[in-house]
Amino acid sequence: MNIISRTSLIIYLKHMKHERQIRKFGHIVATNKQKKYVVLYVNEADADDVVNKLMKLKYVRNIDGSPYKYLKKVYEKEKHELS
């Protein structure tokens, strides 16, 4: 069984009525109507192609990638905690 790595994209829209058109690019996980954004999961291998296609759309304002892969995941004890 192969696990496909996925990444999330935060897509800011001009109007939330365009949320339906975004569905064909990936799996929508969350939306926020006040701030007008959609959180979309896509395969990590296809992420660059999806971002290029989305940026060409008139109703997309901005796209942010997930910061998860840049976060520190392994924590070590600090020097003051060892005593």
Rank of each mutant, 00 (worst) to 15 (best):
M16H: 02
E81D: 05
I63K: 00
A45T: 14
R23S: 15
N62F: 06
V38N: 04
N2S: 14
H80T: 02
I4D: 11
K79C: 03
K17W: 13
V38A: 10
S83G: 06
I28C: 04
R61E: 10
R20E: 15
S83M: 06
H15F: 14
S83K: 08
L40C: 08
T31V: 14
D48A: 03
E19T: 15
K56R: 12
R23N: 12
L13S: 06
A30G: 09
T7H: 01
K69H: 13
I3F: 15
E44N: 14
I4H: 05
Q34V: 07
L82A: 08
I10V: 06
L9E: 02
K17Q: 10
T7F: 00
V51G: 00
H18D: 05
N62W: 05
L71Y: 13
I10W: 03
K36Q: 09
L57K: 13
N52K: 07
L13C: 12
E78M: 11
L57Y: 08
V42C: 11
K56S: 13
K72W: 09
H80F: 02
K79T: 03
K35Q: 04
K35N: 13
S83T: 06
V39Q: 02
M55Y: 12
Y12W: 06
I10D: 01
N62Y: 09
K36W: 01
V39G: 00
N43A: 01
S83Y: 08
I63S: 05
Y75V: 05
K35I: 04
Y59C: 13
N2M: 10
V50W: 01
Y75P: 00
K17A: 15
V50G: 05
D49Q: 04
L40S: 00
E19W: 15
